[in-house]
Lab assay of single mutants.
Amino acid sequence: MQGVVKVNSALNMRSGPGSNYGVIGTLRNNDKVEIIKEVDGAYEIRFNGKVGYASKSYITIVN
Rank of each mutant, 00 (worst) to 15 (best):
17 P>G: 03
5 V>Q: 01
4 V>Q: 07
61 I>E: 04
44 E>H: 10
49 G>Y: 04
40 D>Q: 09
19 S>D: 14
10 A>E: 12
25 G>F: 08
59 I>W: 01
12 N>W: 10
59 I>D: 00
31 D>Q: 07
37 K>M: 09
10 A>F: 15
44 E>S: 03
8 N>G: 12
53 Y>K: 01
28 R>A: 09
40 D>I: 06
63 N>H: 13
7 V>H: 10
31 D>T: 07
37 K>I: 05
3 G>E: 01
4 V>E: 05
51 V>P: 03
9 S>G: 15
16 G>S: 08
46 R>Q: 07
18 G>L: 04
39 V>M: 09
6 K>M: 09
51 V>S: 08
53 Y>L: 02
21 Y>M: 08
59 I>N: 00
21 Y>I: 03
41 G>I: 04
57 S>A: 14
11 L>P: 02
61 I>M: 08
35 I>Q: 00
32 K>H: 11
1 M>D: 05
59 I>Y: 01
59 I>L: 03
42 A>F: 15
43 Y>A: 00
54 A>I: 13
15 S>N: 09
18 G>V: 02
54 A>M: 05
1 M>P: 07
7 V>G: 10
45 I>T: 00
31 D>S: 06
14 R>N: 06
43 Y>M: 02
17 P>F: 05
32 K>N: 08
4 V>D: 02
26 T>M: 11
41 G>V: 04
38 E>I: 09
30 N>K: 08
44 E>I: 12
29 N>G: 07
62 V>F: 09
28 R>Y: 14
61 I>T: 06
12 N>A: 15
15 S>I: 08
47 F>M: 04
61 I>A: 05
49 G>V: 02
34 E>C: 14
56 K>L: 05
33 V>A: 01
37 K>E: 05
3 G>W: 03
10 A>G: 11
20 N>H: 13
27 L>Y: 00
23 V>M: 04
23 V>C: 08
63 N>R: 11
52 G>P: 01
41 G>M: 08
17 P>C: 07
23 V>A: 05
34 E>H: 10
35 I>S: 00
35 I>C: 03
47 F>E: 01
62 V>C: 13
39 V>D: 04
7 V>K: 09
16 G>F: 03
29 N>Q: 07
18 G>M: 04
9 S>F: 14
10 A>D: 10
19 S>T: 12
6 K>T: 11
46 R>E: 07
58 Y>D: 09
16 G>D: 04
23 V>N: 05
18 G>S: 10
12 N>K: 14
9 S>V: 13
7 V>I: 10
60 T>R: 13
1 M>N: 08
23 V>R: 05
63 N>A: 13
48 N>D: 11
4 V>A: 04
20 N>L: 08
14 R>C: 11
7 V>W: 05
24 I>M: 05
17 P>R: 04
15 S>K: 08
1 M>T: 11
35 I>K: 00
6 K>N: 11
10 A>M: 14
13 M>F: 11
51 V>F: 08
19 S>F: 12
5 V>R: 01
58 Y>S: 09
63 N>G: 13
42 A>R: 09
36 I>L: 13
21 Y>Q: 07
20 N>Y: 10
15 S>H: 04
47 F>S: 04
1 M>C: 15
7 V>R: 06
40 D>Y: 11
23 V>G: 03
21 Y>F: 12
52 G>L: 03
9 S>D: 12
